[in-house]
């Protein structure tokens, strides 16, 4: 009898016992630090002497006084702008091919997914750096096949960021798997109905497949944008820890790392972290606002 009564009663004691790891973690490692970094962003702090209040001066410097910071913004936006469409383009293209009921789907899917799994590692970044170096295998191939004497991709400021974009593109597997799952959700009746109405495959693609896939495209887009802004390891390893040549691969996160943990400008780096959070939030918000115009949700007619 008492047990059935318990069903409708709040179980605060035991519930907060189960929640306690997360609540402690949230207060101590998320909320506290976020507020802390907001405070620090208005100070000068080198970890050894007490933080010194400097008002908005860190933010003022970010807005114009720091050429390397502006360069890191340029590099990061360039990276996001090119790597996200490249990755999603490959992912969607191959998902569409794989969704045509071919034999060996599982095999191809695994092969294409593998680089996504390995791609974030230092080992792969080292490999990439060697492949695109002056005497790496890309240039060997260009020379033996076309007698082109290509530059060193890694140490040329015009091309170094391009190698990082390609490395991101190589890792299209995870969004491809998500696209494939989305394509499988599209009911066959939709295609049947369309073909009864006389829609040819191309029309089915543009009027059935793509509209019904837009929620997945949107999801992948948002996740990739958020992730790309935070990329760190490839830029660190491929530029040998410097963001070079000539700061051409100086990712936002790399510059932040350098300011915080090499130069111990914790206050300035905190301001940078806050601006990064704002940039990512703004990018997400813009995506959500734009979604109204192109994302098709099945429940709204």
């Amino acid at each position: 009898m008492t047990q059935t009564k318990n069903l409708s009663k709040k179980q605060n004691g035991v519930a907060f016992l189960f929640l306690s790891p997360w609540i402690i973690g949230f207060l101590m490692l998320t909320l506290g630090p976020i507020l802390g970094s907001m405070y620090l962003s208005f100070t000068d702090y080198d970890l050894f002497t007490a933080p010194e209040w400097t008002g908005f001066s860190n933010y003022e410097r970010l807005l114009g006084g720091d050429a390397r910071y502006l360069q890191s913004l340029k590099v990061t936006f360039g990276y996001v702008l090119f790597s996200v469409p490249l990755k999603l383009g490959f992912a969607l293209f191959l998902a569409l091919i794989l969704n045509r009921g071919l034999k060996g789907l599982g095999f191809y899917r695994s092969v294409f997914y593998l680089p996504s799994l390995l791609g974030g590692s230092v080992a792969v970044a080292i490999m990439w750096r060697q492949i695109f170096s002056y005497d790496g295998f890309i240039n060997q191939f260009l020379w033996s096949a076309f007698e082109i004497d290509a530059p060193s991709w890694i140490t040329n400021p015009d091309y170094a960021l391009g190698t990082l974009v390609l490395l991101a593109g190589w890792q299209f597997g995870a969004p491809m798997v998500i696209f494939l799952a989305g394509l499988k959700q599209i009911p066959q009746d939709m295609y049947d109905a369309a073909s009864i109405d006389g829609a040819r495959p191309v029309q089915q693609f543009f009027y059935v497949t793509i509209p019904l896939l837009t929620p997945i495209i949107f999801f992948n887009f948002v996740m990739q944008v958020i992730g790309s802004f935070q990329a760190f390891t490839p830029s660190y390893i491929i530029s040998d820890g410097s963001g070079g040549p000539a700061d051409s691969t100086l990712f936002y996160t790399l510059y932040l790392y350098e300011q915080a943990f090499t130069d111990f400008r914790m206050g300035y780096a905190s301001a940078m972290a806050w601006v990064l959070v704002l940039i990512i939030s703004a990018a997400t918000a813009v995506s959500f606002l734009s979604a109204k115009h192109w994302v098709h949700y099945s429940d709204e007619n």
């Binding site: 630090p33 976020i34 802390g36 935070q230 932040l256 990064l276 959070v277």
Partner: peptide, 9 residues
């Protein structure tokens, strides 16, 4: 939430 938001503190 990006990790950088809480990294330094």
């Amino acid at each position: 939430l990006p990790v950088h938001a809480s990294l330094i503190p």
